[in-house]
């Protein structure tokens, strides 16, 4: 139960500073590519330049704070569980991308997420996930006439 502070002095702010600076550069570049100018007033690129500047300033701010002693305690993470959730979301995306349909996707999402939280009854979770998927699919497609992505399973209904 005791939070174990890991001393990762100054690394996160430095990394974030680099990311922020990269975003600033991308935004600046994107704005400089915009050719259409407004006939009157400000062009659409003005807001982009403003945001780019804001990011640059924040990057400098983070860089400065990277050289100060850090007061943020970062706790230990169970990266395996995070990975399982990532996998669960990939399962959904993959299923829809590759034409596996909504029911298969949400079944995978449900079962893999439950696994990430330490459940080990994978088969039961698959069945439960599939039941929810079928129910949601029928609710949306038949009653609300909102077409969810269809795969082989959905064609059965």
């Amino acid at each position: 139960m005791t939070p174990r502070p890991i001393h990762t002095p100054n690394r996160p702010p430095a990394v974030i500073a680099i990311v922020l600076f990269a975003i600033a550069v991308i935004t600046y570049w994107d704005a400089s590519q915009m050719t259409t100018r407004a006939a009157y007033g400000m062009s659409a690129s003005a807001a982009s330049y403003f945001v780019a500047l804001l990011f640059a300033v924040l990057a400098v701010g983070h860089l400065v704070s990277a050289f100060k002693p850090s007061n943020v305690e970062v706790e230990v993470a169970d990266w395996k569980a995070v990975g399982w959730i990532g996998l669960a979301l990939c399962g959904l995306i993959g299923s829809i991308w590759l034409g596996g349909g909504f029911i298969l996707g949400s079944t995978l999402l449900f079962a893999l997420t439950a696994h990430a939280f330490g459940r080990r009854a994978f088969l039961v979770d698959l069945c439960l996930g599939a039941a929810i998927g079928v129910f949601v699919f029928l609710l949306f497609n038949k009653l609300l006439t909102l077409a969810l992505p269809q795969g082989p399973l959905e064609k059965l209904f």
Partner: peptide
């Protein structure tokens, strides 16, 4: 899950209206 059972009830109402 309880909320889904609730939906079932609602869905039946929607269904009867839609039909």
């Amino acid at each position: 899950m309880r909320n889904f059972m609730k939906y079932g009830l609602m869905a039946a109402i929607v269904g009867s209206v839609l039909s």
